[in-house]
């Protein structure tokens, strides 16, 4: 390493001196090594789990103009098509005027068959592995409403079992939702029809809401969700069942893609005993208005928490 090395003559082939050649080789090798050490990033790209530039630069949901939303929906449809190979129908459904949703569940009728759990998974494109399920059916001993005594892993040959009743628990769509209060980025909020929604593109995955929810209703995508192509539900909503990415929260949204189009939620339609009732509480002729008016016993789960759920449990007799 002589400091007095003469500058090479650039006009001739002598520019490629032995030293410069070695330096070039070393620099090339170094860059190659750097590139090779970034290989795990490539695997990430193959999984299609990158945040695209459009998503990264996307504005907050409430600030999106209708034109912006058209572009966002086109991006989401493209992403779903690339990943799952089918063209979905994504909509951004807004709350209807004069509608506030309420859910009523008849504990006298529920037999604990868990069909609602799986209808929900199928409708809402939840991950099949690892399993994400919005509904947890608790098997509870008769004479208690203590959820601590509930068991959601029961593995019975036949249901209902003697001496037990079954209580499905999902997002209670609270009027005073603790999950919304703790969100540091306002990625979750309550809409005027009573549904607490999540903007999956705004969520940072801090899981504060999961900790705040007294009902264990929120689920986190620890890994990239796995959904078989043939089980994808192509009827999607932006705030509803469009496929989620790794690192975001999700939860029951009263099947926003169905209910905001006037239909019943999937868990209700599949319930073989008609224990689930859903409707507009502001309409005095709706089933839920009738139930809240006529039926005798109501339980708002963990009423003492002051969350004021829009999910009511009742008994027939």
């Amino acid at each position: 390493m002589s400091p007095s090395f003469p500058p090479p003559d650039k006009s001739s082939d002598a520019a490629m001196s032995r030293r410069n050649f070695l330096r070039g080789c070393a620099a090339f090798g170094g860059l190659t090594a750097l590139a090779a050490s970034l290989a795990p990033l490539r695997e990430m790209g193959e999984m299609g789990d990158y945040t695209s530039k459009e998503q990264f630069l996307q504005k907050y949901y409430k600030e999106l103009t209708p034109e912006d939303m058209t572009k966002v929906i086109a991006r989401i449809e493209g992403e779903v098509q690339r990943q799952y190979g089918l063209r979905p129908h994504v909509r951004d459904l807004k709350p209807m005027d004069g509608v506030e949703f309420v859910y009523c569940l008849n504990l006298t009728r529920c037999i604990g068959c868990r069909k609602c759990v799986h209808a929900c998974v199928a409708e809402n494109n939840q991950s099949r592995n690892p399993e994400i399920q919005y509904i947890r059916v608790l098997k509870m001993p008769h004479g208690s409403m203590d959820v601590e005594k509930g068991d959601h892993t029961y593995d019975a040959k036949q249901v209902p079992e003697k001496g037990f009743f079954y209580m499905p628990v999902q997002c209670q769509q609270c009027k005073n939702p603790p999950c919304v209060k703790v969100c540091p980025v306002n990625a979750t909020w309550q809409e005027k029809d009573g549904i607490t929604v999540i903007d999956y593109d705004w969520c940072i995955g801090c899981r504060y809401c999961e900790a705040a929810c007294p009902y264990w209703a929120r689920r986190f995508n620890f890994t990239k969700p796995e959904i078989p192509r043939e089980r994808i539900n192509p009827n999607m909503a932006y705030l509803g069942n469009r496929p989620r990415k790794q690192g975001v929260m999700e939860k029951c949204h009263f099947c926003i893609q169905r209910t905001r189009a006037g239909r019943y939620p999937a868990c209700l339609e599949v319930c073989p005993v008609g224990a689930r009732k859903f409707g507009n509480i502001l309409d005095p002729d709706s089933e839920v208005s009738y139930i809240l008016r006529e039926k005798r016993v109501f339980i708002q789960l963990k009423e003492e928490m002051g969350t004021s759920p829009r999910f009511f449990y009742y008994f027939d007799k």
Binding site: N280, Y290, K295
Partner: peptide, 20 residues
């Protein structure tokens, strides 16, 4: 009476009767 008011038994379709 419950059945007539939709509170007993299974229902399906549209909760919003004006849409379907």
């Amino acid at each position: 009476r419950d059945w007539e008011n939709g509170a007993h038994g299974r229902t399906s379709g549209y909760w919003n009767r004006s849409l379907g």
